[in-house]
């Protein structure tokens, strides 16, 4: 009976060993999926075009890029056409944007639930990042269809999409945890978020090639912006049919993991107060 049941001790700090945290998160995996499923259902329920928006967003930006950068800025796609070149980075970029936007807002959106029900507070954030994954999957299908038409080269290297997406998911989870936790305490971050994302996009090789950055500065650049190495990897795999630059990718992966670890650590430190301020 209860005498043999696991005893739960609730104290002022919620310090638990990392292993127990991992076990708890695993026990709540169903909750992460439920949050993800709910986000997707709610998001597309009222939109007339539904899931098509996942395709339209990058296409609209592709149009803008073609006019602004392709024509006026005279940026070329190297070996491939500019549209094929730009689209291959735009689709993963929109994953970053959607995941971080929803991930950072997740705790506020579910404030009512936070104040009434216990679950590890990172679950709605993870759910938000996961639900952005569906948008990416739809975008990926778009890429498979359009790249050959636009003049890109597809090869078996497109299988690299899976590890590339995983790295991007780790990175966006970390960023979402940091911004999401700050968002609870300081509502000001609501206004900062769109600006940060806009700057991040223009600071990443989405509209322009990574080669714009001088080779000896590339390492430092990726330390600052780990997304850059991954986005370049996507472009090589999906538009140029080449393998990603594994050196840069390894650096991106390391920095992404560091960001995710720091985000999780910070989130867990701030977690006990969430329900009191939300």
């Amino acid at each position: 009976m209860a005498a043999t049941a696991i005893e739960l001790v609730i104290e002022s700090t919620n310090y638990t060993r990392p292993r127990d945290r991992a076990r708890e998160l695993w026990a709540f995996r169903e909750v992460v999926l439920a949050f993800a499923e709910r986000n997707i259902r709610v998001k597309y329920k009222q939109a007339v075009l539904g899931i098509l928006w996942a395709v339209l967003q990058p296409l609209i930006f592709l149009g803008i890029f073609m006019v602004v950068f392709g024509r006026m800025g005279n940026i070329s796609g190297g070996g491939t056409s500019y549209p094929a070149f730009a689209l291959a980075a735009l689709v993963p970029w929109f994953f970053v944007q959607t995941a971080v936007t929803f991930g950072a807002q997740a705790l506020l959106m579910d404030g009512a639930l936070l104040r009434k029900v216990y679950f590890p507070r990172e679950t709605p954030v993870l759910g938000a990042v996961l639900s952005a994954g569906l948008d990416f999957a739809v975008g990926f299908v778009l890429l498979l269809v359009l790249e050959p038409v636009l003049g890109g080269h597809l090869s078996w290297n497109l299988l690299m999409v899976v590890p590339l997406w995983l790295i991007l998911a780790v990175l966006t989870t970390g960023v979402s945890l940091i911004l999401g936790a700050l968002n609870v305490y300081y509502r000001d971050f609501r206004f900062v978020l769109p600006v940060v994302l806009q700057l991040w996009m223009f600071g990443s090789p989405v509209a322009y090639p990574l080669s714009t950055v001088h080779a000896e500065w590339r390492g430092a650049y990726i330390l600052l912006n780990p997304a850059a190495g991954v986005l370049d990897g996507f472009r090589r795999a999906l538009a140029e049919g080449r393998l990603p630059d594994l050196g840069l990718l390894a650096l991106s992966t390391a920095v992404s993991c560091l960001v995710a670890w720091f985000g999780y650590w910070m989130f867990k430190r701030m977690e006990p107060g969430f329900a009191d301020v939300v």
């Binding site: 049941a5 104290e11 002022s12 329920k45 104040r115 009434k116 029900v117």
Partner: peptide
């Protein structure tokens, strides 16, 4: 465990189910 104590501790044996202001998680669009 929605909120944490400032001092002291609470010990619990068994799985807790709570009915606190039910319906707060119900989503109107679904």
């Amino acid at each position: 465990r929605i909120s944490f104590p400032t001092r002291g501790r609470i010990r619990v044996r068994g799985r807790i189910g709570a009915l606190i202001e039910v319906g707060s998680g119900i989503h109107p669009e679904l």
